[in-house]
Design a binder for these strands. Sequence first.
DNA 1: ATTACAATCTAACGATTCTTGGATTGTTTG
DNA 2: CAAACAATCCAAGAATCGTTAGATTGTAAT
Lengths: 219, 219
Amino acid sequence: MKPTITKSYLYEHVARIGKAISSPKRLELIELLAQGEKTVETLAEQARIDMRLASAHLRALREARLVETRREGKFIHYRLSGPDVAQLWVNVREVAEEHLVELRVALDQMAASPDSLSSESRQSLLTKARSGDIVVIDVRPEAEYTAGHLPFARSLPLAELEKRLADLPAGKEIVAYCRGPFCLMSDEAVKLLRQRGYNAHKITDGVSEWRAGGLPIEN
Amino acid sequence: MKPTITKSYLYEHVARIGKAISSPKRLELIELLAQGEKTVETLAEQARIDMRLASAHLRALREARLVETRREGKFIHYRLSGPDVAQLWVNVREVAEEHLVELRVALDQMAASPDSLSSESRQSLLTKARSGDIVVIDVRPEAEYTAGHLPFARSLPLAELEKRLADLPAGKEIVAYCRGPFCLMSDEAVKLLRQRGYNAHKITDGVSEWRAGGLPIEN
DNA sequence: ATTACAATCTAACGATTCTTGGATTGTTTG
DNA sequence: CAAACAATCCAAGAATCGTTAGATTGTAAT
């Protein structure tokens, strides 16, 4: 017997997507997955939650078809089911930033520099990076850099930054980025670099924001 | 005493937006409000729910700052707090259509013609409408037309279509639209028009989809 | 003042959801 | 085959949500 198709049936399906993104933990997992494919263990570790809880949330995301899986030996790799999912995360976050004052003040209190990029400044950053005028560093874990990064950026994970300071040219302006506006790794990188006398600052863009701005991602 | 700002605090705020759009009824209310400001009574009637339930859902939407209110005498008018909210609705719905097969088959079964518009066909529609090659009719209630409509469209509410058939030029191609892909008013209009011998078809765009496609809205 | 009516509020029930603990599945390695 | 380990499944309690009914607020008209 064929199920009766009512109009509310349509909204129910869209609400499945809404439900999937209605939990803070799941949003964090989506943001992490926007950096590239990851195993459940990695996700649990990076989101600082129990692996069983991570698994449960990932199940919910999979049932909403926002993520897909791939098995490799003992490991199961999760990935977003499409670039539109990362775009949705950026969209929802921007709406939240626009309308929820509490979120804006919290962001101001946390981040050292709330340098949001306009599309013109993204373009000029790209030009300066291409010409070698500035050095763009990606301070995320190397695996995330490999999965995709800003054009002309070099990988310099926060954990190795102190050891690898020699890799950086002395006089040049340094621009650091990480996973996006909620990620504080670039702030820490900037703090450390400034202590060592570098001219460093951060941008809030991650790869998803950069792509959402219409600019290309390398890998 | 200042509240401790943790990272998860940020995701919690974004999740407030997610929670707001995690209910089918609230999504329907958002879609209705995307057509223009409406009173609680109108919303309840058009969503076919009890006014008290509508009020409760609107409260949730207001607490997530997705809607705002304005009092006028006995009536309270609700509106979306910004065009980005309508854009979010379109975005979420598109992600759902992309990844949820059940939604796609339901849409195919319901709608007579699943004519989704590419950006080129939007442009060519606009040109043909401007030149008078085709007649674009807005079959939504007149108040929604007044709040904003497609360029060169004329208002011809479904309820009055039969009476006002004389308003339509005989030979010309007629394109009907309503509130968007989930709205069936344009299907009914097309059905009626074809019975009377008109060359009519529908497009799935509503004003939100049209605007999301980067094209202008008149009022 | 009294009445009418739009809208909200309060209380309460059942249905979900979140989270944790323990048990289980599936794969690799010795 | 047994041990190790990634990941999922299952069960259960606490918390939250959706819905309905009845009571209440606020404004306009008589």
